Simulated assay, not measured.
Amino acid sequence: MTNRIAISLGVFLIAAAVIDIAMFGDLHMIFLGKKLFALIDWIAFWR
């Protein structure tokens, strides 16, 4: 992955998160954050 692709992907993800928070509030992000930590914990268990 080149730097240009990585930067554009990062900008896209940040923009998507900002639009989601602006339209629907921050409850979705809190829910997804909790699920992400649960997934990381589950993956670490199987490692």
Rank of each mutant, 00 (worst) to 15 (best):
M23P: 04
A6C: 09
H28D: 11
M1D: 14
F24I: 12
W46E: 01
M1E: 14
G33T: 10
D20Q: 06
L32S: 11
F37W: 07
W42V: 00
F31K: 07
F45H: 06
A44C: 00
I21W: 07
F24Y: 14
V18N: 04
I19L: 06
G33Q: 02
D26V: 14
F37N: 05
A22M: 02
I30M: 09
I19V: 14
W42L: 05
W46C: 00
A17H: 02
A6E: 07
A15N: 08
T2Q: 10
K35F: 05
V11P: 01
G25C: 04
A6H: 05
D26E: 13
I40R: 01
F24C: 05
L32V: 13
F12C: 13
N3F: 12
G25A: 03
W42H: 04
K34S: 15
K35C: 04
L9M: 15
G10F: 09
I19G: 02
W46T: 01
A22R: 05
W42Y: 08
T2E: 12
L27A: 15
D20W: 06
A15W: 09
L13K: 07
H28R: 10
L27S: 15
A22Y: 09
G25E: 06
L32E: 12
I40L: 10
D41E: 10
K35G: 03
D41H: 08
L9I: 14
I40N: 03
L36C: 06
F45A: 07
I14C: 04
I40W: 01
A6I: 12
M23E: 15
D20F: 03
V18S: 04
H28C: 02
F45M: 11
V18F: 03
D20C: 08
A38P: 01
A38Q: 03
D26M: 11
F31Y: 14
F12I: 07
I21E: 05
A15G: 10
A17Q: 02
G33S: 06
I30V: 14
I43E: 02
W46M: 01
